[in-house]
Nucleic acid binder design. Structure first.
Lengths: 224, 224
DNA sequence: ACCTGAACACCGTTCAAGT
DNA sequence: ACCTGAACACCGTTCAAGT
């Protein structure tokens, strides 16, 4: 419930004595605000208010809202565990990496269309992650020319699954069309009977499938 | 180059003699405008202008821009080929279906975050598609309780891949970090040497992997 | 019922004025 | 250099007035 962070008395125009804002402070306030109120109400104005500052002040530190979103993406990326490739067999490492990746971006779904198109050179942490994943594939003897396609395919699945994780639980309710879709409704009932969350079941099923499919076709051998 | 569709003379306020707009006309104009100018300049104002009408006139026919986007989604969905499940073996049908699905939404990437969250009962064509795909799985003897997770997993991969297909070609250029990422840059060079488009290679690699992985684990038997 | 035109409540962003 | 406050150029949407 942090409406304002500081500034009990109103600041006059003109350069303040000490620096009021910096990149670290802005990014931190943005993440707090996002956690509390979500992306739909995340505006430059709301962010400025939470910092006790006028909206235009932000533009002394960040070029645009788009750039601010890139700062956030970079921080969020830190939640993805890519240390596992150094210690675990490739299959297990991919599972853990993919799960953290999907979970982290399910909380930040609006960043996904951005990332998918953002040059990786704008995001050092993304590059570090790629290096770790590529090393994992390499160590498992995976074909070098298939490594990038495999990583991109996994990421596509992860981003799509993160979007799917934000869907309402009753998204598949056929509503007024109930009774007219025998095959689909049968499958739906069978899935529901398992008691598993649909999005989670889909993610785990798909992740197992894509990982085993990738490793079955592209790996030279599996010393692990 | 169709700035205005009709209305050579300016219309006065008040109800016109014949109906000027309807759902069909609005949706068609929206698609034309999107094809010509893309989503970034797709505003209610621009759409109204292309119809020779004032922006507020649109609200007599559509509740919100969001609803209009749903009309468009419904039309775009028509480009997905789900007839193949009635005639081809499941594996081949899934390949064709997935490719048309991804291609169609690569052209309409901004719809993806919308669809991922839209109740299927709002989209009859999506439901018909699910029925066709579910029938394909069923006919191949696929486990009923695994069918919905399999479809959702495939869709997640398809949506992610459609987003990826909109990325710039040089998205993986390490820029100033060149030389510091030996494994990743090696993999990148190997992939580049194949001469294949990176997004397409990833999609085909991933699609093969996920389909074979799904059918290997969930199918009772394969009569095909 | 269905149009126009003015108005509303926002956005992100720019910029002169102030220290 | 770095703030405020006013202003700009948009958004989507509402609504009274008109036929």
């Amino acid at each position: 419930m942090s409406e304002e962070v500081a500034a009990p008395t109103r600041r006059r125009a003109g350069r303040p004595r000490g620096m009021v804002l910096d990149r670290e402070l802005i990014a931190r306030a943005a993440l707090t605000l996002l956690a509390e109120r979500g992306y739909s109400s995340f505006t430059m104005s709301a962010l400025a208010k939470s910092l006790g500052v006028s909206p235009s002040a932000l533009y002394n530190h960040v070029k645009s809202k788009q750039e601010l979103m890139q700062w956030i993406q970079e921080i969020v990326m830190d939640g993805v565990d890519s240390t596992v490739f150094a210690t675990l067999p490739l299959t297990e490492a991919l599972f853990i990496w993919a799960r953290t990746y999907r979970d982290v971006f399910a909380e930040h779904a609006p960043l996904i269309p951005l990332i998918a198109v953002l040059p990786v050179s704008d995001s050092p942490r993304t590059l570090e992650m790629y290096e770790a994943v590529a090393a994992g594939f390499s160590r498992a003897g995976y074909s070098a020319e298939s490594t990038v396609p495999a990583i991109v395919a996994l990421e596509s699945f992860i981003f799509g699954s993160a979007l799917d994780a934000t869907a309402p639980l009753d998204i598949f309710d056929p509503g007024q069309y109930a009774g007219r879709l025998p095959e689909f409704e049968g499958a739906l009932a069978a899935q529901r009977a398992t008691g598993l969350n649909s999005a989670d079941a889909a993610f785990l099923t798909g992740l197992r499938a894509i990982i085993s499919g990738l490793l079955a076709t592209g790996a030279a051998d599996f010393p692990e």
